[in-house]
Amino acid sequence: MIELRDVQKSYGRKKVLDGITFTANKGDITCLVGVNGVGKTTILNAIMNLTPIKKGDILIDGEKMTTELYNKVAFIPDVAIMLPGMTVGETMDFMKDYYDTWNGKRAKDIVRFFRLNTTDKLSELSKGNQAKVNLLMGLALDVDYVLMDEPFSGIDIFTREQITEVFSSRLVEDRGVLITTHEIVDIEHLIDKVVLLDNGRIYKEFNAEEMRETEGKSVVDVMREVYNG
């Protein structure tokens, strides 16, 4: 379980995270939802210890984040994070070199699934394919949790479909997935839990299925209510 307790962070006087408390369970897809700039990416960065927090605790299965835990939690940011001069194959070698949890067989499966070419240089890849390489690096690790930041942003419809397929595949099976997005329609039916953010605070936290069953509202309906009303 990824657990955030009263996490606070500010840039100067501006509070970007204000008392964020929620959990993301293993086996669930938890979605952090909110318009641009509400602090979704900051939360993921904070979980991965890529930005310091002012106050609060972040625990991964009850432990504070350490470098060893990078073998347990994978983060897939929405920007290219490997050197542009590397080929897809070199990227895979690099990951294999450093991560005990790198699963070479699964990596090959993902390469096939995404129809990537291992000899292609990252700098020559389209935005969509770069996003796929990012997914490859995160999903080929035998980790318990995967964090994804805006996996659909700026990506064409076909790639989007492929990525969406990932969520229903065994690639994320049994893992805890924490995903941020403001384009929720494509994966709405797969989400277990929604954390709605507004102005650095948690506005609402609910189970997507329960919401559909009890109130007959989709996640997008709830979002409309919050952000338009």
Binding site: L50, L69, F75, P77, I81, L83, S123
Partner: peptide, 12 residues
């Protein structure tokens, strides 16, 4: 061109 700091800082 790419933010390699992400990868480096997330190495175990």
């Amino acid at each position: 061109k790419n933010t390699f700091a992400y990868r480096l800082l997330m190495l175990p």
